[in-house]
Design a binder for these strands. Structure first.
Length: 184
DNA sequence: CAATAGATCATCT
DNA sequence: GATGATCTATTGC
């Protein structure tokens, strides 16, 4: 299928990429899910972003070319999936906060023994990576070509997007950079 | 049902 | 040695 989003899609302002990713299909490891919640992390003045302090061995991916995955481990137990936006040399990435399982739900249940209900399978940054089998091995992977891809599920259809302050962070938490589908 | 504490490790100072 | 873009289990009404 050639409905994989082209690299040009990611080569634009982080905020536009974050909104554009909503309603898209995230595919990996025999599972797939609709992206229903994202969060934008800028560079420079955005102190909440890992890239705020400049390039480090960990954050170099964020400054690299767009359309790549940035996966990191936080709190020692959970991994979070980001997709790099902006052109090469500029910092900017989109955190995928939640998806709605579409394919491979049985597989997700296996990978998440603790989840009682289907809606909890991937309703959080750490949960969706666990459910879809995403690990740091995918850090730097090309999202337009590789084991991890993002596709356009319903071309032409418009979704109603809600904007709210970011959550789960200790700095700049009130910046309105969190986006989610209204249906949620 | 709401609030709180604990788990656990890569990365940076 | 401190910190963190989280999740889950447990406790208390």
């Amino acid at each position: 299928m050639d409905d994989i989003l082209p690299r040009a899609f990611y080569n634009q302002p982080t905020v536009d990429v974050a909104r554009g990713l909503l309603g898209k299909l995230l595919v990996h490891g025999g599972t797939a899910g609709t992206i229903v919640e994202t969060e934008a992390y800028l560079g420079g003045d955005d102190l909440a972003s890992h890239s705020a302090r400049g390039i480090t061995p960990r954050t170099r991916v964020i400054f690299g070319p767009p359309g790549h995955a940035y996966v990191y481990l936080n709190y020692g137990i959970h991994e979070c999936l980001n997709i790099v936006a902006e052109q090469e040399g500029a910092a900017g990435c989109v955190l995928i906060r939640a998806i709605e399982p579409v394919c491979g739900i049985e597989l997700m249940r296996e990978r998440r023994p603790g989840a009682r209900k289907d809606r909890d399978l991937a309703s959080g940054p750490g949960k969706l990576t666990a459910a879809m089998g995403i690990t740091r091995a995918l850090n730097g992977a090309d999202v337009t070509r590789g084991p991890l891809t993002v596709r356009d599920r319903a071309p032409g259809r418009k979704f109603e997007i809600v904007t709210t302050p970011r959550i789960g962070i200790t700095k700049c938490a009130d910046w309105p950079l969190r986006y989610l589908l209204k249906s949620h």
